[in-house]
Simulated scan of single mutants.
Amino acid sequence: MNLASVALLAFSMSTDAFAAAIGKGLALERPHWREAVRTGLIFGVIEALTPVIGWALGRVAANYVEAWDHWIAFTLLGGLGMRMILASLRAPDDEDEAKPNRHGFWLLAVTGLATSIDAMVVGASLAFIEVEIVPIAAAIGLATLVMVSAGVMLGRVLGVMAGRWAEAVGGFLLIGIGTTILVEHLRIV
Results as ranks from 00 to 15, higher is better:
residue 121 V to Y: 05
residue 175 I to W: 11
residue 78 G to D: 03
residue 92 P to W: 09
residue 168 A to C: 06
residue 153 M to E: 13
residue 112 G to E: 06
residue 15 T to S: 14
residue 115 T to Q: 01
residue 48 A to E: 02
residue 44 G to L: 08
residue 102 R to D: 14
residue 130 E to R: 12
residue 154 L to Y: 00
residue 131 V to E: 02
residue 13 M to L: 13
residue 173 L to M: 15
residue 83 R to D: 11
residue 65 V to Y: 04
residue 89 L to C: 05
residue 131 V to D: 00
residue 36 A to Y: 00
residue 12 S to W: 07
residue 56 A to P: 03
residue 51 P to K: 11
residue 46 I to N: 08
residue 119 A to G: 07
residue 57 L to N: 07
residue 184 E to A: 15
residue 97 E to C: 05
residue 19 A to I: 07
residue 146 V to I: 14
residue 13 M to P: 02
residue 174 L to N: 08
residue 161 M to Q: 13
residue 99 K to C: 03
residue 87 A to H: 11
residue 84 M to K: 00
residue 155 G to C: 04
residue 83 R to T: 12
residue 67 A to Y: 08
residue 130 E to N: 14
residue 17 A to D: 06
residue 177 I to Y: 05
residue 133 I to R: 00
residue 45 V to G: 10
residue 30 R to W: 07
residue 41 L to C: 11
residue 149 S to W: 01
residue 105 F to P: 09
residue 114 A to Q: 06
residue 56 A to Y: 13
residue 118 D to L: 05
residue 138 A to Q: 03
residue 114 A to C: 09
residue 42 I to R: 02
residue 181 I to K: 03
residue 189 V to G: 15
residue 89 L to A: 10
residue 153 M to Q: 06
residue 187 R to H: 14
residue 20 A to W: 08
residue 34 R to E: 08
residue 114 A to I: 04
residue 179 T to P: 10
residue 26 L to P: 00
residue 26 L to F: 10
residue 167 E to L: 13
residue 62 A to N: 08
residue 15 T to Y: 14
residue 168 A to Y: 03
residue 154 L to S: 06
residue 52 V to L: 11
residue 185 H to T: 07
residue 180 T to N: 12
residue 5 S to D: 11
residue 69 D to P: 02
